[in-house]
Design a protein around this nucleic acid. Structure first.
Length: 273
DNA sequence: CCATATGTTAAAAG
DNA sequence: ACTTTTAACATATG
């Protein structure tokens, strides 16, 4: 579920609903999700502190705890979500696929709660993740990430692309190059820019780079505004027997950058027009 | 049982 | 040593 837009809404949820409350207890018993920490290590570091600010770069979230407290790193992985429970016991789960979820008293499956912070006076923040590929850790290294996909400048993008002969889609998916682009967003951006996902990244010409940059920023901003990567134009057309909503040509499918990839067989030809 | 899944990364290959 | 590709990770669902 989470690509950059979903992660941004999770960050905003933390900022809006989970700051400035004293941490009373922490459940960090899932050592796969909380690796490399030992059980109790996150609890010992966090109890008594408050969350003071929530940040994001690409798909990585980090939360400050103020003063001499640690930084809490959160990654939603492939299926993670942030749930915040208010002091009144109602759950706020944030936007889901573009639709704001109502606050609810019916929690998700408790067996999918992988990490929980309990606040003094009631309420909690937790990582809800049915696949357990999310991560929670102290003092994450976010500097290894490339510039955020929604912030990257055109010259910077050109520079990053020119340094790789891999398919442009694979390069876009590399979080060390540009941070925040996932499989669906990559397909959306390349479709918007009318560029084949298989084109070598360092062979894009000036015009293609400009188109890619514009598509990147507009797709990221649009998806954040609409509430998720699923609101992209091409996303509903990624499927067998589907056709390009612009020109009507059949959609092509293959594996690029290790992921299932769909593109317009006509407008995103391997040889640029 | 098989294939697929919106992410990351260690290991293998080049 | 660096870059690129593949497989594995944990788990659910069709």
């Amino acid at each position: 579920m989470p690509e950059l837009p979903e992660v941004e809404s999770a960050r905003a949820l933390i900022e809006r609903s989970a700051l400035h409350r004293t941490i009373e207890d922490v459940d960090d018993a899932d050592t796969y999700v909380c690796r490399p920490h030992a059980p109790g290590q996150l609890k010992d570091a966090l109890v008594g502190h408050q969350l003071t600010a929530a940040h994001r770069r690409g798909k990585s979230i980090w939360v400050e705890t103020g003063g001499d407290g640690p930084v809490l790193g959160i990654h939603l992985g492939m299926a993670g979500r942030i749930h915040v429970v208010g002091t009144d016991g109602l759950e706020e789960v944030g936007p889901d696929y573009g639709r704001a979820a109502p606050r609810s008293t019916t929690p998700g499956k408790p067996e999918w709660d992988r990490f929980t912070i309990v606040f003094r006076g009631g309420g909690a923040l937790r990582l809800f993740d049915k696949r357990r590929l999310g991560r929670v850790r102290l003092d994450p290294d976010v500097d290894a990430l490339g510039p955020d996909a929604g912030e990257v400048r055109e010259g910077e993008l050109h520079e990053l692309l020119s340094r790789s002969s891999a398919p442009v889609k694979a390069r876009l998916l590399d979080q060390h190059a540009v941070a925040g682009i996932g499989n669906l967003l990559a397909d959306e951006v390349l479709w918007q820019a009318e560029i084949s996902p298989r084109r070598p990244a360092d062979e894009l010409d000036e015009d293609e780079t400009v188109r890619l940059h514009r598509a990147l920023r507009s797709a990221v901003r649009s998806a954040i505004r609409k509430g998720g990567v699923h609101t992209g134009e091409i996303v509903p057309h990624r499927g067998a027997g589907r056709h390009c909503p612009r020109c009507g040509a059949p959609m092509s499918r293959s594996t690029v950058g290790g992921r299932t990839t769909w593109w317009c067989s006509q407008e995103q030809a391997d040889t640029p027009r």
